[in-house]
Amino acid sequence: MTASTPLRFDPSLERPEDDEAQVRDELIATMRSISETTYADGGHALRSVHAKSHALLTGEFEVLSGLPEPLAQGLFAKPGRYPVVMRFSTNPGDILDDGVSAPRGLAIKVVGVEGERLPGSEGDATQDFVMANAPAFAAADAASFLKTLKLLAKTTDASQTLKKAVSSVLRGAEAAVEAFGGKSATLTSLGGQPLTNVLGETFYSQTPYLHGSYVAKASLAPVSPELVALTGMKVDTHGRPDAHREEVNAFFSRSGGEWELRVQLMTDAEAMPIEDASVVWPEDQSPYVAVARLRVAPQTGWSEAKADVVDDRLSFSPWHGLAAHRPLGSINRTRRANYERSRDFRAERNGCPIHEPRSLETLS
C-alpha cells in the first residue's frame, strides 16, 4: 500500500479513554457556567462558545461531478445542489468588542440532505460542518481541552478593556512567532488572533470524520478573486466594536463570493491520528481535494433580523448529519452532548424552539 492510498476506516482506530464520560460531564458543566454567566449579565441566552456572529449568509452548495470513489461518499456520492446557511463567528462565549481578537469559526448547514442519519438527528435533512481557521485543534483530546476551557471560563466576566489589552499583547507575541515562520495555537486561542478580514480565512474541520468507508478532514477555502484578495487583509477595529460585521456588509453589498469545500483523506494512521486532534495531517502525503463549491450572491451580510433566525433559532453541530460522516475521536465524541445541552439551554431561556430547517424558506 502506497502512502497516497486512502485507508478504510477500522473501529480499532478509535480508542476512548476510561474517564471520557467524566470529562464529557465536566465539559458540559464548564460550558453551562459560561452560558449562565452571560445570561445573568445580558438576559439573553448565548452559545457557550462562538457566541458572536460576524456574517450570516445563505447560498448554494454544489457537489461536484466526476469525483473518484474514495471522495464520492455520503453527501458527495452524487452531484447535486442544495441550499446552505453559513455562520461566521469568533470563539468566546460572550459578545466582545472586535478589538478582542480570537480564533474564527465557521458553521455550515447544508439543507435538504437525505440518507441514513446520525443518532440524535433522525428525521432531519441537514448536514453540518463545524470549522475553525486553523488546520488542527488547539488541544489533543477532550481532557486537554477541558483544562483550557476552565481557564477561559474564569475570564467570562473580565472587563473588555482588560481583554483588549491582553489581546493586543498576545497579537504582538504571535506576530513575533510568525515572523520566524511559526504559529502558536496557544497564543491565538487565548487572544492573539491577527486582526484580519474573516472572509479571507481558510477554515478546517480540525477533527476527523467518517467519509463513507474512509476517514477524512475537511476545509473550506475562498476561491473567488474578491474573497482571495481579503486573505491576510488587516481590519481597523479602533472605535468599531462590530468592525467585522461592517466589513462583511460592505463586501456583500457589492459582491458575491465563492468557496471550495475540500476533503483530506487519511492515508497513514500514525501520521494522521484520529485521537490526537492537535496533529496537523501532512498535506504532502494527502492534499485537500475539492468536492463541492459554495456560492453566495450579494446580500445583507449581517443584520439583527438574520441574527434572530440564525443565531437564536438554529443550532449547528458535527452530529447533525449523515451516518456516512460520523464524527470521530475524543473531541467529537464529547461534543455531541455538549452541543445538545447548549442548544437546549438557549431554547429554554429564550423561549424560542430550535429546529432543523428543511428549506431556506423556513428561515424567513
Rank of each mutant, 00 (worst) to 15 (best):
E114Y: 02
L27W: 08
S4H: 13
S89T: 14
L96Y: 09
A125Y: 03
F61L: 06
W319F: 01
P353M: 00
R87P: 10
H325A: 04
A243N: 13
S219N: 13
Y288M: 08
T2P: 07
A45Y: 00
F61P: 09
G112D: 05
S4M: 06
S101P: 10
L220E: 08
G200K: 08
I28C: 10
Y214W: 09
V289Q: 12
A229D: 07
L322T: 01
V113T: 05
A51G: 10
P208S: 13
A3I: 12
S189W: 12
S205T: 13
L360W: 00
T5A: 14
T148Q: 13
A72L: 04
G321W: 01
E356T: 02
V223M: 06
T5K: 05
R47E: 02
A269H: 09
Y339C: 01
A72K: 01
S286A: 15
L294H: 00
A307C: 13
R8K: 11
Y209G: 04
G329T: 03
V309P: 08
Q22V: 12
L118F: 04
R262P: 02
P208C: 09
D97A: 12
G200A: 07
A77Y: 06
P287R: 11
D308E: 15
G43F: 09
S65N: 12
G66F: 06
E226C: 01
H211M: 12
P83D: 10
L230F: 12
E114D: 08
I274D: 00
R346K: 12
L220S: 06
L13F: 15
G181Q: 00
E270C: 05
S167L: 11
E36S: 04
D141W: 01
D98E: 11
D311C: 09
S121I: 01
S167G: 14
S184C: 10
S184E: 09
Y39T: 11
H320L: 06
A107M: 13
M131A: 01
G301K: 06
P194Y: 10
P92T: 10
S89E: 05
D308Y: 02
E114P: 02
A142L: 01
I354E: 03
R15E: 08
V113M: 00
E26H: 15
D284K: 08
E20V: 05
A324C: 04
S359M: 02
A134P: 00
N332Q: 12
H320V: 07
A323F: 03
V280C: 07
D308R: 07
A176T: 10
R254C: 03
S255E: 10
A165W: 05
T156A: 15
G191T: 14
G192D: 14
S65F: 03
L265I: 05
P11D: 01
H244Q: 15
Q299H: 02
R8M: 14
T237G: 12
V228Q: 14
V49F: 15
E247Y: 13
G329L: 10
R15C: 06
I28D: 02
L220D: 07
L261N: 05
G105W: 05
S213D: 15
G115E: 05
V310L: 06
L162W: 04
S167M: 14
Y209M: 13
Y214T: 10
V235T: 11
